[in-house]
Structures are given as structure tokens and as C-alpha cells.
Design a protein around this nucleic acid. Structure first.
Lengths: 292, 292
DNA sequence: ATTTTGTCTTTTATCGACAATAGACAGATC
DNA sequence: GATCTGTCTATTGTCGATAAAAGACAAAAT
């Protein structure tokens, strides 16, 4: 098959959620805007909703016939885009499975392993190469440089440079900049998780990304903001496969974030720098510990 | 056709240069190492050399029959890899041709324009996207963000951060590190070009890249070094299509480099920082002038 | 005992094809 | 007059196929 209809399936599932809370559905363009897909996809969704008896659809009238049941949803593993599947498989191989630095990466083998065409794997590797973990030998294979101590140190060196600058810039955002509200919202989630840390510590990973990305955005520099992708992906998989002491680690990081947030609000450069440095230092140590 | 044999043609041309200065050719593996290609390609080259009567080839004996003439070489436009062709076409479109920021980029149209398949264009765009000049809308087109003033400012901001750090690190390289010799060699070329500036000012572009890359390498950080690719490509095309006052600009930059080199050799952090800042400042201004 | 060559297999780079998805436009509906 | 729908076209994402190039291995030559 040429293309998996994962966009359709994923949007369909989200549409079931909308449908669950309403007796009727809005116009095609509005649905499209809400789900972030084109009208073509919306019409496929509506057609299927009608087909499985969830909806009567005639032009503008879209009447919900019954609430969706679990069986109406497409299974989760059919809604992931190919790029996501490839990324996960690949990261599992190189982060979780003990892949040696210097190892050759074979496009064809990877593709067969994942059950996909070579083109998609190739494009993934090209995209992924900017993370500095692999390198191409032209007309030949890719080389795995590995998730090594050096990698982590180089990564965090740049991260610290960038984040210190972004944090300093944050203090100069105008009073009415939406970032301040977002900061309030993020703080609230921090407190909520901390209050219920034994249960909710797993939510930290996502919150961490949200917070740091907000800070980096204050730099208004695309290179600094884009670089955060690398941090995010490394930490994302790092959290996912390295759960030792997760509760304690995350509780500490949450506390550090709160100090950091407080410093940002104070707009005091010294206070910001100190809080930022302190947090980045412990983040680096956490990362390094997971390597050796 | 599935693949152009540009590797063969390009290596063949370089082999003619080797052949011009010798009566015989070395072993296949050695030739391969010298030209940076596999033995398979070497054997194709040898076969063709024999075919056009430049060589008798029987196992180890490879006797040159005559000197190559211009007609023996493959034409230049057949030796560029597809990736190079695509890059040039694309850069001409967006830097030379007045492409508007926000413009959509169409893979199919680009491919037809360049006379190539869509896959290659696609892969190029993915690779190129890390330069921050284009952005992908998933399942839809690419958007040209444009070579704008903001782009130049964001680029130079990071460049300055990185280069100041690299320059500082340079001072700490051990006495016997090869970088010091390379620095001497680079300085010598500077002086040679300056002594003959009216004729040789065009050689500055390449030298500039060589010098700054050497400095960045002192950081020993792959992200810093890789970032220099972006600088290099931007300045490369910038020099190529913006020749106004090139002689004066390059003469100034050469002089600044000499001060900078001298500072590096002194290992005095303050002197280094001052020289580095001064040069980066004027480099930034030069770049900005070419935009508005 | 290396190094070189002959032969064969594997892998990459590139193409064209096709389903999924986006998007354009005119006519219909509020 | 604005928004919505029906219909049609254009573009992207993915695949399998194929020539170019890399590379493995054993036999041959130094």
C-alpha cells in the first residue's frame, strides 16, 4: 500500500470524543479546524460514522444516533504515523538495546525489521542525523556514534549555554506577554503533582518539556528553540526506559523548577542565573548517571 | 535510470590527473584509497581507461600508453552528484531569485524543474530544513521562511555565542596539537592573499571557512561544529551572489583575521575575546548589509 | 605472510507509481 | 453576503524495483 490512512484513523478516534459530548456535529470546515485535518479527511470520517451507525449525515444535518463504544475506536497501534513507529523502534534499538558505538546501521535491515519500506527509514535517518547520534558515510552505511558520555556532555554544554541566555531573556518579556500566564499554569501543575507525588510523578516528563520549551522560546531564536528538540527526544526516551529512582528524581526536579519559576518571576538576573544553573547541573548529573 | 554513475565519472577524471604524472598505476586497493572509492569503481575506471586506449591492464601490470587529452575527461556537469545539483538549484531559487518569505515549496514542481525524481528533492529538503530556512507542514507543503533580517540575526547570535567559546577553548589546546600548525598554514595563506589582494581576493571565501572551522573544532563539541555548516552554506552562497565591494570587504576581513590569529597565539583570554568580537561584529554587518 | 586480484553478494541512491490527504472552486444553503 | 457542501485536481507519503557502488572472501601472486 502506498500510504497508511493513519491521519484518518487518528482523527476519527478524536472525533468520537467530540461526538460523545454532543447530539450533533458542526460543519465540515469547523470540524476540520478542530481536528487539524482537511475536509477530505473529515468527509471520510463522517462517511464512516454513518456506516457504523453512529450518525445520520445529510448535508448540514449531522445527528448523533448513539454514544460511541470502545469497539468503535480504531486500535491504538493503527493510529501511529509511520514516522513515529520508526522513531520508537530505532530509539529502542539504540538506547534500550545495548548498541555499540561505531556499529553500522543498515537501512534495508532496519526497514525489514520494522516492516516498512526503505524510503521511510532513510528519511527518518536523515531527519534524525541532526541529533548527532548517527553519521552518514556517503554512498555507504550510517555509523552509530552512540549514546555515550561524550554525547551527553556535549549536549548539556550547549543546552546550558542556550538556556541561560533564554532565561535571562525571559525576564525582559513584557508584562502582558502570554508566557507569564503559561508560566502560572505550569507552576500550578507543578504544585498539583507535588501534592500527589507518589501517584503522579510519572507526569513530570511531559511537564518538564513544556516548561523548558517555554523558557527557550523567550530567546526568540529559531536555532535555540530547535535545539531543544534534541534535548526533548533524549530526555523523553531516557525517562521512558530508565525508571530507577524516578519518584525521587522527579520530586527533586519539581522542587528545583519551582525555585526557577520563582526566580523568573522576580526578574532578578542573578537570581535567575543561580536557579537555572542549579537545575541544569542536577539535570546533567541525572542524565550522566543513567549512562555509566 | 536508477542511479547516475557520477562517483565513477568524478573519480575517473581525478584518476586521469594521477595517470598524467606517471607511467604506471598502483594496485587497485591503493588507487581506491587514493581516490576515496571502492574497488568496484576502480575496476570500472581501469576498464574504461583500457577501452579508450590510455592503458594496458592485465592483472598487476597497468602501463600508461599515452598522456590524457582534454577529450578524455568527462564533462564537468556530469560529475556533480545529484545532491549538489539540487542544492545549487534550490539555493539559486531562494537566495538569488527573489523568493518571498511565506512562499510554498512544492516538491513535485521543484523535482520537475531540476529534472529529477521527487524522492531526491524530498531528501534534500529534509536535510536542508535544519538550516532553519524552510519548515514542513505535515502532510502538506514546505514553507519558505526566507533569508530575512531575522534569520541573519538569529544565526549570528548563535554563531557569536559558539565562536567566543571555541576561541577561548583554542587557547587551551596543548602546545603540540596539530591545530597550531594548521593555524600557521592558514596565516601564511592570509598573508599571501593580502600581498596580491587585487587578483586573489576571491580566494577569501574558502579560506574564511577553513579558518573558522578550525576555531570551532577547538570546542570539541559536535553541536557547535555541526552548527558551522549552517554558517558555511549561508556565507558560501552569499559570497557567490553578492560581489559588491568584495575586494574591500575581503581585505578588511583578512586583516581582522590576522589580529584574531595573533590573539589566539597569545593565549590571552581578553585579547582573544576582543579580536573575536570585533571580527564577528563586522562579519554580521556585512551579512546584514546584503539583505536590506 | 602480506598484498593483490577475481568473483560474488549486499547495500545505497534514485526512479516511477499509487493511495491518502490536502486544497481549490463553483454552486447551494442559510 | 457569508458559510457550507459537492466535486474535482494537486500534492504528499510510501512502496517496490533497479543500476551504481560498496564490500566480503577465497584464490593467486609477490
Amino acid at each position: 500500500m502506498a500510504k497508511q490512512n493513519t491521519v484518518f484513523k487518528e482523527a476519527f478516534n478524536r472525533c468520537l470524543d467530540i461526538l460523545a459530548g454532543s447530539d450533533t456535529l458542526p460543519s465540515e470546515p469547523e470540524l476540520g479546524a478542530r481536528l487539524g485535518v482537511s475536509r477530505t479527511t473529515i468527509r471520510s470520517i463522517l462517511a464512516r460514522l454513518e456506516e457504523i451507525g453512529l450518525l445520520t449525515w445529510d448535508k448540514r444535518t449531522k445527528v448523533v444516533l448513539r454514544k460511541p463504544v470502545p469497539g468503535d475506536f480504531f486500535p491504538d497501534d493503527e493510529t501511529d504515523s509511520l514516522a513515529e513507529i520508526i522513531e520508537r523502534s530505532f530509539m529502542r534499538r539504540i538506547l534500550a538495546g545495548g548498541a555499540q558505538p561505531g556499529m553500522q546501521i543498515n537501512e534495508l535491515e532496519l526497514a525489514r525489521d520494522i516492516g516498512t519500506g526503505t524510503t521511510s527509514v532513510r528519511e527518518f535517518l536523515i531527519r534524525f542525523s541532526r541529533f548527532g547520534l548517527i553519521e552518514k558515510r556517503p554512498n555507504s552505511h550510517w555509523v552509530l556514534k552512540g549514546f555515550t558520555r561524550e554525547f551527553a556532555l556535549e549536549l548539556t554544554e550547549v543546552r546550558e549555554m542556550f538556556e541561560l541566555r533564554s532565561a535571562a531573556a525571559f525576564a525582559h518579556l513584557p508584562e502582558d506577554h502570554p508566557a507569564w500566564q503559561e508560566l502560572d499554569a505550569i507552576e500550578a501543575v507543578h504544585r498539583a503533582i507535588l501534592a500527589d507525588i507518589d501517584i503522579r510523578y510519572g507526569e513530570f516528563s511531559e511537564l518538564d518539556e513544556r516548561f523548558h520549551l517555554l523558557v527557550q522560546k523567550a530567546s526568540k531564536n529559531r536555532f535555540i528553540i530547535d535545539f531543544y528538540d534534541i534535548i526533548a527526544i533524549v530526555f523523553h526516551y531516557h525517562y521512558q526506559w530508565n525508571k530507577a529512582n524516578a519518584r525521587t528524581r522527579n520530586a527533586n526536579a519539581l522542587a528545583e523548577h519551582l525555585v526557577y519559576i520563582d526566580a523568573l518571576r522576580s526578574r532578578d538576573p542573578q537570581k535567575i542565573e543561580a536557579a537555572c544553573r542549579a537545575h541544569l547541573k542536577s539535570a546533567r548529573e541525572t542524565l550522566l548517571q543513567s549512562i555509566n
